[in-house]
Design a protein around this nucleic acid. Structure first.
Length: 436
RNA sequence: GCCUGGGUAGUAUAGCCAGGUUAGUAUACCGGCCUGUCGAGCCGGUGACCCGGGUUCAAAUCCCGGCCCAGGCGCCA
């Protein structure tokens, strides 16, 4: 290997001989000294070279280094550490593994670069330690969710990304050529998760991508995003789904708070882990709440962004909570597969989770009764043939079930207070961007 | 898709409204100075008006079209 230690793991034992590797952060010549900073993903090391003591060849190499050259360094831990940044090393040998030209963007933080330009140079942009911190947090966030799911009997599954027919009526999907036939990239793993409930898998989760062919120009939309999609059987109603979702949510945040203190500090983020149960607002009461706040929404209609913001404000003021559920959406604005409230079928057992003003997930109880599903297909004006591949299965026994899909980028964005979802996506896909 | 605001060195910005200087500044880069730098500092240098058309004696600046960006709305994770 080109190194024996990550920089953060180099022992503070004077005289210890180690080999580290990383990018050149800076080279400075001051008086009798040449200082070289080397960064790996764990931290910074300063190489200290002293004229008259260090060999001429080593001084020559050190002076010739450019920012972001990749090097491997063999050296000794000094008696006295004087560097204020990271650890210090007296180099004995510097091997240049790769040379770097002048960087197209600033990664050090001295000049801030616009997001779009950064994304053009994303692999270099990601060398910024703050960006690494974002994805460390994201990794832990997802692990917090999977750990909770695994320990509560949920089976991880993988459902198809290519589907033969649109999963919901009228949704904008990417069309692909499938051996001369029309196929689509899924916009949600929804229907296949339900089929696994029909299969008797009872509790599953699917972490994977979804695509939306919507030309959305907003800071919170991507054309490709990943979700943690959960489905479970034998629920009494959608409240059982909500109880699972909030436990999952809490477990994920706890993991981040426990394990990513350093990263949260670097990013200047404070996280409070909320307590269950989360506040729940329901239609049609929501119309009254909005009305009392001066916003009129017609009975039976969906709320818009402004309405959502007002509800967020309402929950903050009334419950002092930055997370809440919205339940019982109008069936008119939801897809055919949701379960309606039998006694009042204007409303669906459809649930959104809103965190820090951002819609994190949609879900709820699904309709598992064949006759009802077919009735709703008709009510939505869909051609029954187009969803037969899905609906047929419900003739042969289906447990009552429900689930939700938490947007991973959205979750990360809300958690870190990022101003744009692309900040928390490694290589985002947006209407005008599909590279790198 | 609609609305608003933008596009100036590698990066980030000033100048544009009231058209006319060597297009200013920071940072990066190159060179020099400095006996421990750590956001180092100081001196010198290289480097730019998105593309196409129009108005004008003259366009970074005004007008039209295109492409791209940011934000708001719709759609939603």
């Amino acid at each position: 290997m080109k190194r024996t230690h990550e920089i953060a793991d180099v022992p503070h034992t004077p005289g210890a001989r180690v080999r580290i590797a990383g990018f050149i952060e800076n080279v400075k010549e001051v008086g009798r000294f040449v200082f070289v900073w080397v960064r790996d993903r764990s931290g910074i090391a300063q190489l200290t070279l002293k004229k008259g003591e260090t060999g001429e060849e080593l001084l020559r190499i050190a002076r010739s280094l450019n920012k972001h050259d990749v090097v491997s360094v063999f050296g000794t831990v000094p008696e006295l550490r004087e560097a204020k940044v990271g650890m210090e090393l007296i180099p004995l040998e510097v091997e240049v593994l790769s040379k770097a030209e002048r960087l197209p963007i600033d990664v050090s933080g001295s000049v801030s670069t616009q997001l779009d330009t950064r994304l053009d140079w994303r692999a270099i942009d990601l060398r910024n330690p703050k960006n690494l911190a974002i994805f460390k947090v994201q990794s832990t966030l997802v692990r917090g969710m999977t750990e909770w799911l695994d320990s509560h009997g949920f089976l991880q599954v993988f459902t198809p990304c290519i589907i033969g027919a649109p999963s919901e009526s009228g949704a904008e999907m990417f069309e692909i050529d499938y051996f001369g036939k029309r196929a689509f990239l899924r916009q949600d793993p929804q229907l296949h998760r339900q089929l696994l409930m029909v299969a008797g898998f009872e509790r599953i989760y699917d972490i994977g991508p979804s695509w939306r062919a919507e030309p959305s120009h907003t800071p919170r939309h991507l054309c490709e995003h990943r979700g943690c999609a959960v489905e479970l059987s034998y629920i009494s109603d959608e409240l059982d789904v909500m109880r699972v979702e909030e436990q999952l949510f809490i477990a994920a945040l706890k993991r981040v708070v426990e394990e990513r203190t350093k990263e949260l500090e670097l990013l200047g983020v404070e996280v409070d882990v909320p307590k269950a149960p989360f506040p729940e607002l329901r239609f049609p009461e929501i119309y009254e709440i909005l009305s009392s706040m001066g916003k009129e929404v017609k009975f039976g209609e969906d709320i818009d962004r402004e309405g959502e913001r007002l509800l967020n404000q309402y929950v903050m003021e009334r419950y002092n909570s930055d997370v809440f559920f919205i339940n019982r959406f109008p069936f008119a604005v939801k897809p055919f597969y949701v379960m309606r409230v039998d006694e009042d079928p204007v409303w669906a057992r459809s649930v959104d989770l809103v965190y820090r003003g951002l819609e994190l997930s949609s879900g709820g109880q699904r309709e598992h009764r064949y006759e009802k599903i077919m009735e709703q297909v008709r009510l939505k004006g869909m051609n029954p043939e187009s969803v037969k591949w899905f609906t047929e299965f419900f003739k042969y026994g289906a447990p009552p079930h429900g689930g939700f899909n938490i947007g991973i980028e959205r979750f990360t964005m809300a958690l870190l207070g990022a101003s744009n979802i692309r900040e928390v996506t490694l290589f985002p896909r947006a209407p005008e961007r599909y590279s790198p």
